[in-house]
Each structure stands twice: as structure tokens, then as C-alpha cells.
Amino acid sequence: MSLALQHSVKTRQGRDLVPQDLFRRLVDFCADEYGLEHSVADRIMDQGLAFLWTMGTTHTEGTLAPSKEVDPAWHTFMLHSVEYAEWCRTNFGRFLHHKPNSKVRSRGLMVSVVEHIERAGFQVDKRLWQTAAACNEPACCGDGPCC
């Protein structure tokens, strides 16, 4: 009888994809802009960065979409345009444009997004991936029902 060794594989976190000082600035901005507790903004930014990395490395920017809860992370990072543009260029060789389309977002899409992020090796906070993003006030996406 042989024993197989079990290795614990540590999942990645989105927060590790940017310098710590930038992550803190993004969390602070997200919390302030969206009226969130810092602990919630921290989780949102972590998941948003994991989402962006997954989308950028798998070339699925036309297919994947953030949840309503995670979409503010993308908005926050894009508003830090110098850092966002450089991060995209360095990591993907291109700019990840935010082209929201609430008409194609569904619960099934959120399941698919979570699966993509998990396959990329990231820890997923499934509480933030329950609904699709249609529009997030105060920064409306431009195509959601509130616009």
C-alpha cells in the first residue's frame, strides 16, 4: 500500500497583484466613493483585481463581467488611470476596457466568472458574486436600467 502525499496549495489573492500602497489607496477610495466599510471595500478590491487578472490573462474581456458588488473595484481602479493603464500594459500588453452590457449578464454568467477565477488559482469570496452588475450608483455604467 502506498501513501500519496497531500500538498496544500495556497490560493492567490487579488491584493497581491498590485503594490501594497496602491492596494490601500484603492481600498480607501472605494470605501469613500461608494460609502462602504473599509473591510467590505478591501474584499471588493481583492476580488476585483482577481477578476481583472483572470480576464486579462484569459482574453475573456468580451465574455466575462463583474458582479454588481465587484464592479466598483473596476471603476475605482480605472479612476486611478495612470496606475491602471500601466498595470494593464505591464501584465497583459493591452488596456482592459470596461464595456458594460447589462443585457447579457445573468446568474449563470456569475457562476462562470467564479469558475474562471478559481481556475486561475484565486481565492473567491462567493458572497460578492451572487448577482450580475447592471448599474452601480453613483457611478452608473451607462447601459443599466438606472441610466
Rank of each mutant, 00 (worst) to 15 (best):
S2L: 11
L3M: 09
L3S: 06
T11E: 15
Q13T: 05
Q13R: 01
Q13Y: 01
R15H: 03
L17P: 05
V18H: 02
P19K: 04
P19G: 02
R24V: 13
V27P: 10
F29L: 12
C30H: 05
E33H: 14
E33L: 05
Y34G: 05
G35C: 07
H38V: 07
S39P: 04
V40L: 15
A41G: 01
A41C: 00
D42L: 08
I44P: 06
I44A: 00
M45Y: 03
M45I: 14
M45Q: 10
Q47K: 02
G48T: 01
L49D: 00
A50I: 02
L52N: 11
L52W: 02
L52Y: 08
G56N: 09
T58Q: 13
E61C: 05
T63W: 14
A65F: 13
A65H: 13
P66V: 13
P66L: 03
P66M: 14
K68R: 07
D71C: 10
D71P: 00
P72E: 03
A73L: 08
W74Q: 15
T76H: 09
T76M: 08
M78K: 15
H80D: 11
V82R: 14
E83N: 03
E83M: 03
E86H: 06
T90F: 07
N91P: 06
H97P: 05
H97G: 07
K99I: 15
N101F: 05
N101H: 13
S102H: 05
R105M: 05
R107G: 09
V111F: 11
V111N: 14
V111W: 15
S112R: 15
E115F: 11
I117Q: 08
E118R: 10
R119C: 02
G121Q: 02
Q123A: 09
D125Q: 04
R127H: 10
R127L: 14
R127F: 04
L128C: 05
Q130E: 15
Q130P: 05
T131S: 06
A132E: 13
N136T: 11
E137M: 07
G144S: 13
P145H: 07
C146S: 12
C146W: 13
C147F: 04
